[in-house]
Amino acid sequence: MPVKHPPDYEITIPECKGDILRIRDLRFAYPDGRVALRGVSLNVCEGEKVAVVGPNGAGKSTLMLHLNGILRGHGSISIAGMSITRENLPIIRAMVGLVFHNPDDQLFSPTVFDDVAFGPLHMGLPEAEVYTRVDEALAAVQMDDFGKRLSHHLSAGQKKRIAIATVLAMRPQILVLDEPSSGLDPRARRSLINLLRELPITMLISTHDLAMVEELFPRMVIMDEGFVVADGPTAKLLEDGVLLEAHGLEKP
């Protein structure tokens, strides 16, 4: 049952020149007829860290898949002023680093090195540069010596870090993470949170982990049934028990 909540809050987006991500009235339905997005609009500024929350089936993952042109809905998306067209796709995909929910889907090569090198190689970078990028990305997620390791020997937390490294190696402008903390034990989750805090990059994540949102993300967007139902400062939204409950969320 679609519940439409008009936003009770004036949307307070921090002042910024040149939004890095601008989505206007995005709509999308899957081929089997399921409507996932019913008109989503969102702006993200450079350097911002934004969390998208909401129940399963709210359209969060579908939204994420639009950001680097894997799914193409109706409406407009622009990344640093560029709209997503066939010609722009290679640049867009280098700019938007998308990390999937399940690292086993993201890490598809036999070794860690092959996986982290996949992005830079397919961007057409020269060999020496590819090695530099791989070292740099693995260092950024504190997994320096893992290049030779086999992907299926890694723990869940390590896989998550390597998955992030695979997109960092492409030096993206925006990091988009789908449920980064799910399936991790407390220690791995803690070290992931520390990692995300230290990465100096624009970040848009979808998650169910409101405790992490409270700790890391100053701005929160609530989605439900394909709509953005609230968008504002995390601290303020988390105080509204009625709003949270209406969308199946719990204050941490």
Partner: peptide, 12 residues
């Protein structure tokens, strides 16, 4: 899903 992950990293 793997195909999407490959696309996202520049596979053509």
């Amino acid at each position: 899903r793997i195909y999407y992950a490959m696309l996202g990293r520049g596979y053509t």
